[in-house]
Amino acid sequence: MDQEGADPNFTATAAMEADRVVVTVGGEVDMSTADVMFETSIRDGRPAATLDLRAVTFFDSAAIHALLRLAEHYGERLTVLPSPQVRRVLEISGLSTQPWLSD
């Protein structure tokens, strides 16, 4: 599943793996694309999610808000794979020690 009508510098695709949705996000996650990332992550109603952000080049406060909403939605069943840029933003935001953030 791909996003529709979003920024051309952004992609979000979902793949199902048993009871987990794996959402691969690329490009810039900002106020115009953060909701698409969130909706793509919850759309299929799976009880667990992996958010692969390793191809993300920009991550702003709207993206952080969407990520925190996903953490609230999935709880301990969320895994986030960050790019260096995302990890840096999460470090600055004080979120680098969250249990859902993968090394």
Rank of each mutant, 00 (worst) to 15 (best):
V86P: 05
T50F: 06
T57W: 05
D7P: 07
W100R: 01
S96A: 14
Q3L: 12
V22I: 14
V22E: 01
R69G: 05
R77I: 04
L68N: 10
L78S: 07
D52Q: 11
L70R: 07
D19N: 15
Q85A: 15
A18W: 02
E72C: 06
L78I: 08
F38K: 10
T40C: 00
Q98W: 06
F38D: 06
V56L: 01
A18S: 13
S32F: 15
D7K: 08
S93P: 03
R46G: 09
E4L: 13
T40M: 02
R46K: 14
T97N: 12
L53E: 14
I42N: 06
A66W: 03
A55Q: 08
G94L: 07
L78M: 08
V56H: 06
H65F: 04
S83E: 14
R20F: 04
F59P: 02
D44M: 04
S83Q: 13
H73E: 01
P82N: 14
G75D: 06
R43Y: 09
F38Q: 09
V80H: 00
E4I: 07
L90W: 02
L81W: 12
S93C: 11
T50C: 04
L67W: 00
A62P: 03
H73L: 01
A71Y: 15
A63L: 07
Q3M: 12
A63H: 03
E17P: 02
V29H: 02
L67G: 10
A6G: 15
R54C: 08
L68I: 05
V23G: 02
I42W: 11
P99W: 00
Q3A: 11
G26R: 04
T13Y: 07
L95P: 15
A62S: 15
G5I: 01
E17F: 09
G45Y: 07
E39S: 13
S61L: 01
T40N: 09
A34Y: 15
S61G: 02
F38W: 11
D44H: 14
T97G: 15
A12N: 05
D35A: 12
P8S: 08
R88A: 12
F38E: 05
A48T: 09
V36C: 03
V89M: 09
I42Y: 14
A14F: 00
A66Y: 02
R77L: 08
E76T: 13
D103F: 09
E4K: 10
A55S: 13
E39D: 13
T79W: 00
P8Y: 04
S32G: 10
D52L: 03
V86N: 08
S61P: 08
H73D: 04
A34K: 08
